[in-house]
Amino acid sequence: MGTVGDALDNALMESQLGLYKTELIKPRRPWHGPPDVALATAEWVDWFDNQRLHTAIGTIPRHEHETDYYARHQPTRRTLRRSCGTRIWTSMASACAAATSATESSRSSTR
């Protein structure tokens, strides 16, 4: 058992650390130093977050599921007005329109 605040104090984190050690650390021994472990860890985290297939969400990577979810659940103007207020929505729309206008004018001037 760890002390309060350690990863070992949390069952979910213990499971994650066990998976990390089983899939990455133990099979690739011996390591040549901390930089090798750090690089391999970054690669494993990228794979775990962006490429690993999840059967619970349709055998697709997590980031693909999140992209699909947020594309289907875009907040409507009515939802934003209720949660943020009309003034914020209007300023967001104005900023978006200004950015689009600036992008279009810079494209036309480069042609």
Score class of each variant (00 low, 15 high):
Lys26Asp: 07
Leu12Tyr: 12
Thr110Met: 14
Ile88Gly: 01
Gln51Pro: 02
His32Lys: 14
Arg78His: 15
Pro61Glu: 02
Trp89Thr: 07
Asp68Ala: 09
Ser106Ala: 13
Leu39Trp: 11
Met13Val: 03
Ser94Arg: 11
Thr22His: 02
Gly85Cys: 01
Ala71Glu: 15
Ser15His: 08
Phe48His: 03
Leu12Met: 11
Thr59Lys: 01
Ser101Gly: 07
Thr103Ala: 12
Ser106Trp: 01
Ser15Asn: 06
Gln16Asp: 13
Glu64Arg: 01
Ala71Leu: 11
Thr55Ile: 05
Leu53Trp: 02
Leu8Trp: 09
Ala99Asn: 07
Arg52Glu: 05
Cys96Ile: 13
Lys21Trp: 09
Trp47Arg: 01
Thr67Tyr: 06
Arg52Ala: 03
Thr22Ala: 13
Tyr69Phe: 03
Thr55Phe: 07
Ser108Val: 10
Ser101Lys: 05
Arg77Lys: 07
Asp46Thr: 03
Glu66Pro: 00
Thr103Ser: 13
Tyr20Lys: 03
Gly18Asn: 13
Arg77Gly: 05
Arg111Asp: 12
Gly5Pro: 00
Leu53Gln: 14
Tyr20Val: 05
Glu64Met: 08
Thr59Val: 15
Arg81Tyr: 06
Ile25Gln: 03
Thr41Arg: 02
Met13Trp: 09
Thr100Ala: 13
Gly5His: 05
Ser105Leu: 10
Gly33Cys: 10
Asn50Trp: 04
Ser91Pro: 00
Arg82Ala: 14
Val45Ile: 06
Lys21Met: 12
Pro75Ser: 12
Ile60Cys: 10
Pro35Trp: 00
Ala102Thr: 01
Arg62Val: 07
Ala42Gly: 05
Glu14Gly: 04
Arg28Asp: 15
Leu19Gly: 12
Arg111Lys: 12
Asn10Gly: 02
Leu19Gln: 12
Met92Leu: 14
Pro75Ala: 11
Gly58Leu: 07
Glu23Pro: 06
Thr55Leu: 10
Arg87Asp: 15
Ala99Ile: 08
Asn50Asp: 00
Arg72Gly: 15
Glu104Phe: 07
Ser91Tyr: 12
Thr86Phe: 12
Gly18Ile: 00
Trp31Ala: 00
Asp9Gly: 10
Thr3His: 07
Lys21Tyr: 03
Cys84Glu: 14
Glu64Asn: 06
Ser101Met: 08
Asn50Leu: 06
Thr59Cys: 15
Thr79Met: 15
Ser83Thr: 11
Thr103Asp: 14
Thr90Trp: 08
His32Leu: 13
Leu39Glu: 15
Thr86Glu: 15
Arg77Ser: 04
His65Thr: 08
Thr55Pro: 00
Ala71Lys: 06
Glu23Trp: 01
